[in-house]
Amino acid sequence: MPVWVRRVLVLCTCLPLSACAGRQSALDPQGLQSEQIRSTLFIFLAVSAVVWIGVVVVLAAGMLRTKRAADRPLDLHQGYEDRAGRVVLWLGTATALIVLGLSFVSYAGQRTIFAKDEKALTLKVIGHQWWWEVRYEADSPHKSFVTANEIRIPTGKPVRVELESADVIHSFWVPSLTGKMDLVTGQKNELQFTAKNAGVYRGQCAEFCGLQHAHMAFAVIALPPDEFERWREHENRSAHSPSDPLGKQGEALFRARGCALCHNISGTLAGGQLGPDLTHIASRTTIAAGTLPNTPATLGAWISDPQHIKPGNLMPKMPLQSGELIAIIHYLEQLK
């Protein structure tokens, strides 16, 4: 498609919007796949616009034409009937050809976005009601680690995400990078994409998955490759035990108050597998699957009453005294 056509189309689609370049937008592609999809979309949009305008113009012209005066509904001209029948059939044929053409355009786009690259970085995402478990699995087990709701990837390198569900069907969708793919119970799906530019791209569950479907977001953070490698090294390390008394108290409370039954913190005795892994919780940008920014205040609000912020989620409200809460927050804040 010529550049100017594309510009006009972008302009047309963005005009009615206050902000087109949201953090979660199919119109603002930042990956190879999402770019391809947008091009396909624009081709379809252009064809559709022409067809729609054509229909409306013919409709209007038909209404505005001079009409015969007498009301004799069966006084038909065989010539018009035959001509109209032929025109209708020609237009039907044209529709079929357009449809055929668009099918090929679509299939070409489909091949591109689902093309597989065996050298891709592979990670696994497991959907839970209502958060995302992210597993970076390497050849050797001590290079594998687990995190949640935040996926860091290198720019310019294909990433393959294997998708599974621990409970109901979810759908993994980061519109700025590529289209969505469902996480189907009892089935392994996968999705491959390449981020062109560094940035934070918001994603969200796109298949209705129960009460808190609206609060099941995540972030894909694309980093330059060397920065990604540094992060990976860091993320692979176990948590440091805190050195200060408040932190030590927090670590003890984390076990004593039941947090450790569900949450894992590598390198400590906390080994729960039900909830998100918290080994590097302090380095994540949001909590509760993108529901709140990750600050000491929001963390405190969340721990003291998770059911108020996200009703129905599986984290129970634990009876904590304010001193205990402060200690736990202090401890978690050290898990960089």
């Binding site: 199919a26 391809q36 999809i37 396909t40 559709s48 679509s106 289209g179 969505k180």
Partner: peptide, 29 residues
């Protein structure tokens, strides 16, 4: 007449969602 104007538009957006690549973006939105 309203039907023709609206339905044709809906039909065309239907052609869009029938395309696999476009549908991966717009499905369930």
């Amino acid at each position: 007449i309203g039907f023709i104007v609206i339905f044709v538009l809906g039909g065309l957006s239907g052609v869009m969602v029938a395309s696999v690549p476009i549908d991966t973006q717009v499905h369930d939105t």
